[in-house]
Design a protein around this nucleic acid. Structure first.
Lengths: 195, 195
DNA sequence: ACCTGAACACCGTTCAAGT
DNA sequence: ACCTGAACACCGTTCAAGT
């Protein structure tokens, strides 16, 4: 099969490569946004990003028509890693071990990138690249669940959508409680999923 | 024991009863805020609330020094119900059944009141009433967990703080996935908590 | 084509002036 | 004491004008 491999520097809609200066400007905006996120500012004000990147506000809106689109662009890189991890997990030797590992990886990615956590939790993708990544994730997790069911490693009624929602819930629980409880909460969820 | 029973009409800090007109104004603001929340506006703009309640902005700030304080005032009523439910659960006959019932009740309250969900997830209370409710909840859940451990109904390392964080995670998972999965997710969490 | 930034609407927050 | 609302700073979003 042939999953799209979107990268954070992809243009918003068309498949043409960006002109060099446009790509540079785009990268500057993403860097500025990431710096604000890293600094704990979860708001991502468009005006502030424009100023920090040295561009006009209109340019931010041209590249990212909404804050959601910006968040998805920021999350794209890690989202791709997560999809890779899911595909490897679906193909790994011991499926129960793979499920456990994937849960931990997903949690790490979400805790390491608030943009990814937000994107996984949103009901609808703003950018087609994000939709493609979501579908690739679903496909990989479906494969993993199929094998896990056959091996009697998981309750049969669990779907890929459940796994995604439970990823999000797990991330939220750890955010509320603190990083120290990360492994214990993963364990609780894993036990809850077992057949 | 003697837990404070804060009600949403309590004044922000002192214990003196409010003057009649002040209490009326306060109730109007809370009503206006609730209407906006019910209408799906999760933002709770102070200016808009002031206008809707027919008071000056300064009055909103006088009663609720921060948006968090406003959220906590909105959540107080349901928070009280949740604490009651936890205390009844801790005293109920079959402790495993009580734990399951409490989980469901907490989820219902959080899904029915976004303000409560936000307040349960916040690390620090803005108002003393909220802190008192939080402590009462912890005490009741501790009692419940003590009995559940003795009955071998729950993993021994689970604490009241865990339960609170997992409440929040469960709520988030259901919000991401949709109400239809509510009972299944409660089941997953319960299985994960079992000894 | 792409970028700029002024312009307008709106919200957060404060505080001098009113009752 | 308590309330009012003007005032200032800031952010979202659009769009006419520039290159």
């Amino acid at each position: 099969m042939d999953y799209p491999r979107a990268v954070s520097t992809d243009p918003p809609t068309n498949a043409e490569p960006l002109r060099a200066d446009s790509a540079r400007v785009r990268a500057r905006m993403l860097r500025a946004a990431r710096e604000r996120l890293a600094a704990g500012d979860t708001e991502l004000p468009m005006n502030a990003i424009a100023k920090a990147a040295g561009v006009g506000v209109g340019t931010v809106y041209r590249h990212f028509p909404s804050r959601q689109a910006l968040l998805e662009a920021l999350a794209a890189e890690r989202f791709t890693h997560l999809v890779d991890a899911a595909e490897q997990a679906a193909a790994g030797p011991d499926i129960a071990t793979e499920l456990a590992r994937l849960l931990r990886t997903a949690l790490d990615h979400q805790l390491g990138d608030p943009a990814l956590a937000a994107v996984l939790a949103e009901p609808e993708a703003a950018r087609p690249e994000t939709r493609a990544l979501g579908q690739a994730l679903t496909t990989a997790v479906d494969r993993l669940l199929h094998r896990a069911r056959a091996a009697g490693a998981i309750r049969p009624e669990i779907t890929a959508d459940d796994v995604r929602a439970l990823f999000c819930g797990l991330q939220h629980a750890v955010t509320v409680s603190g990083d120290a409880d990360r492994d214990r909460y993963v364990g609780i969820l894993l036990r809850g999923l077992r057949a």
